[in-house]
Amino acid sequence: MKMKRIMLAALFLIQPFFLTTAFAERVVVYGLDAMPLCGVVDGKPAGITVEILQEATLYGAPEFKFVMDVPWLRAQMMVQNPGNELNAIIPFSRSPQREDTFKWLGELIQTQFRLYSFNRATPVLTAGEAAGIPVGVVRGHAIIPLLQELGINKLDEAPNAEINAKKLQHKRFDTIAESDFIAFHNWRKIGEDTSLLQEGLAIGEITRVYIAAGLHFPDATAKKIADALNKMEKDGKLQEILNRWR
């Protein structure tokens, strides 16, 4: 009986270790439907950031399971709250407003936020001009506080970038605020010529897009991800992936 109690006590002591190890082997990654950065193509996760992380697993990062059907604002809340899964979020723009509330696991890509217009006499080149017109944005996008700092507050929100592009196409408004990769990809996706998309005012500095997580994310797992991405950058694999999507 005494031996049985000892074995049970030992089991309870080592159980957290096994649970932690199991979680560390796979990270659930919540993604925004924001191709070409990430999304779903033919029923499978796809995009630049997905491909980078899939390759990172071969370089020593944990396995990643991609979930693309959770609303963006809810996904951000989920990764900030400890639960029964180890999770992260992509493609997540690093900004001063977010800096202290997320753990930044690794940079995946750099992009530029900008105003894009369609069928205007001239593109929107100043914040003052943009402040007087409706501007289409994706709900929960990191560009929103940057626009508001410039006094651009007439924001027409959409659940994803493709719907935003369609609203621009159908003249619900004539200007959107979006990153370069995403704006041009979705404009092509809806059958439009990218030469007709007018580039306007740049919003903020070059944006660094990360895989991010809540502050509770284990440091050891974060280091595995960062180390894998660093190895990919040094041997040219990261640039090879980016070049395929340009």
Rank of each mutant, 00 (worst) to 15 (best):
P71G: 10
F18G: 12
D33C: 03
G60F: 15
E25V: 00
V28A: 01
I14T: 14
V40E: 09
T21M: 14
Q76C: 05
F12I: 12
Y30W: 12
I6N: 05
E51P: 06
P62M: 02
E55I: 10
P16D: 02
V29C: 01
A61S: 12
K2C: 06
A24V: 10
M77R: 14
G43I: 03
M77S: 13
D69L: 04
V29W: 09
K4W: 15
F23W: 09
T57F: 02
I52Y: 06
R5P: 01
A56E: 10
A24M: 09
A24P: 03
C38T: 10
Q15P: 01
T20V: 07
I14D: 00
L32C: 02
F64Q: 09
G31V: 08
Q76W: 02
A9G: 04
A9R: 00
I48C: 10
E25N: 08
K44F: 08
A34M: 04
I52E: 01
W72Y: 15
F12Q: 04
L8M: 03
K4M: 15
A75T: 02
P16K: 13
L58H: 14
Q15E: 12
V27Y: 07
A22H: 05
G47T: 05
L11A: 14
E25I: 01
M7R: 15
G47I: 08
P45S: 07
R26P: 05
M78H: 00
T57M: 05
D69A: 06
D42C: 01
D69Q: 03
V79R: 15
V28M: 03
Q15I: 15
V28N: 04
T20N: 04
V29F: 03
